[in-house]
Amino acid sequence: MSSALLQKQLSTSLSKGEKRILLIRHAERHPFEKGSLGLEVGLTSQGKKSAEQLGHSLKDITVNKILTSPVERCIHTSECFVKGYGKSCAIEPSSLIGSPGPFIFDPDAAGPVFLSTHLIEVAQSIVKGVSLPGMRTLSEGGQIFLDHVSTLDSKITLMISHDIIIALLSAFLLQDVHVENYMPDFLKGLLIEYTGNKISRLTQLT
């Protein structure tokens, strides 16, 4: 979905009880070093520019809140978005969507799995119900996310997260085992629309 189409969909007026969650991956980052979880890896100059451009493209939309993974590149993505957005918007770090996110309950136990296994293989194992050290099942992690979203009172919330978290949530919400199809590019992800406490529409942002 292009920025113009996203803006059009977000600008549609919301009725009472309706809300939208824009869940996207952080902007372009530098490559990870081998043997590192990459938590300290920051944005490239192009990534910062792209996040600003996204913010500017949505300047006519009222984004009520930004929830971001506590990882530095996600926080910087949020800050660059707000810079381009041109209006004040609260940025709130949240472990719900990163470090550790909804699918990890023990980062120390889960860390070695990510160092030794390709990211897509980790995601596929979770979707298949394979028990992995320090990690929750797909349904457990997905429900933790939904329970938190149900408490949000903002009309439009932007969430800045990570590829595997977005892919797993997409597979859970869309009830599709092909999680590899939902690994998002930078600043892409999922638009979740609610009526009351029920999801009314899911749109993959590619």
Rank of each mutant, 00 (worst) to 15 (best):
S50T: 07
S170F: 04
S57R: 06
P31Q: 12
P93L: 05
G101N: 02
S200T: 15
L174N: 13
S131E: 15
P112W: 01
F81V: 02
V71N: 02
L43P: 00
S50G: 05
K65S: 06
E92I: 04
S78D: 04
G84K: 07
H26I: 09
L168G: 12
C74A: 15
G47S: 08
I75K: 10
A27Y: 09
I104N: 06
E52S: 14
C89E: 02
P184W: 03
R73V: 06
Q53Y: 01
S11M: 11
G38V: 01
Y85H: 02
I104K: 06
P70A: 09
L39Y: 09
H76L: 10
E193R: 12
G111I: 02
E193K: 12
L191E: 11
S78Y: 03
I120T: 12
D106R: 00
S45V: 09
L54P: 01
L205W: 14
D185R: 09
G134M: 08
R25A: 06
T203V: 15
L169P: 07
M183H: 10
I24P: 02
Q143P: 01
F32L: 15
G129P: 12
V63E: 06
L169Q: 12
E72P: 00
C80F: 11
E79S: 10
F172H: 15
L37E: 02
G38C: 01
K49T: 13
I91L: 09
A110D: 10
G189S: 04
L169W: 08
T157K: 05
F172D: 03
P102D: 08
L43S: 00
L138G: 12
T203A: 13
G142N: 07
L115E: 00
G134V: 03
V177A: 13
C89F: 04
R20T: 14
E72C: 05
K65I: 04
K83C: 07
S125V: 00
I199S: 08
L169S: 06
S50L: 11
L23A: 05
G86H: 02
T157H: 04
E28N: 00
C74S: 15
H118N: 12
P70W: 07
A109N: 03
L10K: 04
L152C: 04
S13Q: 14
A4Y: 12
G17L: 10
G84I: 07
D153F: 10
R136H: 08
S200P: 09
P133H: 00
A4V: 14
H178D: 12
G196A: 10
V82I: 15
Q9D: 09
V122A: 10
G111L: 05
R25P: 07
V127N: 11
V82N: 02
T195Y: 06
R136N: 14
D147A: 13
L168K: 15
S57K: 03
H178C: 07
S94N: 14
T77G: 05
L67W: 12
I156S: 00
L205D: 02
T62N: 13
G55P: 01
V122S: 09
K19E: 09
P31M: 10
I97S: 02
Y182A: 03
I61Q: 06
V82A: 11
G84L: 11
P93H: 08
L152Y: 10
T137C: 05
E72V: 13
Q9H: 12
N197W: 01
V113S: 02
E92Y: 05
F105A: 02
F186W: 11
D176C: 13
K83T: 14
R73D: 08
L146E: 07
K49R: 15
D176P: 08
M1K: 07
